[in-house]
């Protein structure tokens, strides 16, 4: 079928960014370089360099039942090795963060295999096999989907999405997992995602400036950004879906 996914409506820069990030064919721009060890430290599920604990024996060593679906679906590396399911969770400020919870879930579903994204109003969690998670988390953190000041890696106590920013431009964090080193203009994680102190600081890159954030944000914001109501195509599309769903439920007929 010659079907080309459109990902979403809208003529504004916000809508364009949403489409770009969801499209697996679009190569995300890399803007920082956090190492595997940094990611492992911030997530705090295992010590860097430690072996991956397993939830079950590797698939090759256990008797798989004869199942056509199992033959059809190639397991991910983590599933093959029997890794545990682990998570990373993000909070994104409504002040022009590059990502937001719904978008994160959409883009992860489009881009990655074997993930279970969970969307909440001010945070988004994604669960998958541990070694797959580390690979995905590295991309989520190192690319334009993440800003070190307006996005936070927060496993618990996530409040901050809808609050005003601190004077230095950082999103509120009750546990202050990361601090802004003003001299170096660098955000440093001093606690892991659940708030346990780290043995060493983890550099999360410089906070991006307002111009960059407004060019890369996926959040409509009437104060200083693109207002949702200004994107007529988006409004028309959402109203059409709403109307069809209201009239016809899950079998829309125009």
């Amino acid at each position: 079928m010659a079907y080309k996914a459109q990902y979403g409506p809208g003529s504004s820069i916000v809508a364009e960014n949403r489409r770009k990030y969801m499209n697996p064919g679009y190569k995300l721009e890399k803007i920082r370089d956090m190492s595997d060890e940094d990611i492992v430290l911030i997530m705090g599920h295992r010590a860097p360099g430690a072996a991956y604990p397993t939830a079950h024996p590797p698939l090759a060593e256990q008797q798989e039942p004869a199942c056509s679906i199992r033959k059809l679906v190639v397991p991910t590396d983590g599933a093959k090795a029997g890794d545990r399911i682990r998570y990373i969770q993000f909070a994104d400020s409504m002040f022009f963060a590059p990502s937001q919870p719904y978008l994160r879930s959409y883009l992860e579903s489009y881009r990655y295999r074997g993930v279970d994204p969970g969307t909440l109003s001010g945070r988004q969690i994604v669960e998958c096999r541990e070694r797959d998670l580390e690979k995905y988390a590295k991309e989520l953190v190192n690319t334009e989907l993440f800003d070190s000041a307006r996005c936070g890696i927060r496993g618990a106590t996530v409040h901050g999405h809808s609050l005003r920013l601190a004077e230095d431009g950082m999103m509120f964090d009750m546990l202050q997992r990361c601090i802004l080193d003003k001299k170096a203009n660098m955000v440093k994680y001093v606690k892991n995602q659940i708030g346990e102190p780290l043995d060493k600081e983890v550099k999360a890159g410089k906070p991006m400036d307002d111009k960059w954030l407004k060019a890369h944000t996926t959040i409509f914001h009437s104060l200083g950004g693109v207002a949702y109501r200004d994107d007529q195509e988006y409004i028309d599309y959402v109203q059409r879906i709403h109307s069809l769903r209201t009239k016809y439920g899950f079998m829309p007929v125009e």
Partner: peptide
């Protein structure tokens, strides 16, 4: 304003010290 407790009030790190510059 939002509270800044001296110890982590909930979550896996509950009870741990919560140093905060604010």
């Amino acid at each position: 304003g939002p509270r800044l407790p001296a110890t982590v009030p909930y979550g896996p790190a509950r009870g741990a010290m919560n140093p905060h510059t604010m």
